[in-house]
Design a binder for these strands. Sequence first.
DNA 1: CAGCATCCTATGGGATACTG
DNA 2: CAGTATCCCATAGGATGCTG
Lengths: 127, 127
Amino acid sequence: MATGERRGDLFDEACPTRHLLDRIGDKWTSMVVKVLTDAHPHEVRFAEVRRRAPGISKKMLSATLRSLERDGLVTRRVEDSVPPRVHYGLTGLGLSLGGPLAVLREWAETNMAEIDRHGQLWDAGRG
Amino acid sequence: MATGERRGDLFDEACPTRHLLDRIGDKWTSMVVKVLTDAHPHEVRFAEVRRRAPGISKKMLSATLRSLERDGLVTRRVEDSVPPRVHYGLTGLGLSLGGPLAVLREWAETNMAEIDRHGQLWDAGRG
DNA sequence: CAGCATCCTATGGGATACTG
DNA sequence: CAGTATCCCATAGGATGCTG
């Protein structure tokens, strides 16, 4: 991703879910999309996105945003000033992704605690 | 994952979606869950899961199933025979994950073609 | 400010061979 | 049959420093 490369996996055609997860399943994409979704229709500047996605490095934010822009989910607008200001926003496609992500989030909020609890019991039984 | 280890990322508490994607966003989990969801309420044996998730190695199938079992999404039942037969199925929790995954899949089926097309245009403009 | 370049490590995951 | 064990490599992604 950092290089802008994309792999064309055989399973991409066979399994759309896998294909999508290849794009949004990495460490930062879902958080960046959420930041831009929450801000919509307002654009958000690079540093501000970074502030709202705690922990992300400049390198990864840059790579994540470029990947999203490449896929047509995010717009990038450079304000011609010194120092430069770059504004990011969602395309219609990017905005539409908010629905599925919200569903995922809702399920996660309801069930991740149980998953964690189960995992801890499991680990304890192996200690 | 292969070792059964789990990282406790700081963002897990802050972002449930990220937390969930840490579990299902890897290469095989979503496909394995889909196989078991499609088969439900019937259980599926190890080799049969493998057949329905083309390309997965024994190692990765083993690791993926164990991870899902650890998280309480999948049941594992060993039939006492020689050679052994091991049957996998979904728990209620695992079954409930089918909803969100179907939403993801639907969005992907509708939009991944456009994403790919956009990405190819982008790449062409950089060639 | 908004990045890119570079270096580095940990991890995911494939190939292959072995086992109860 | 249903796994483990081992080896190997490609990649994700963090840390740091430089630049227009």
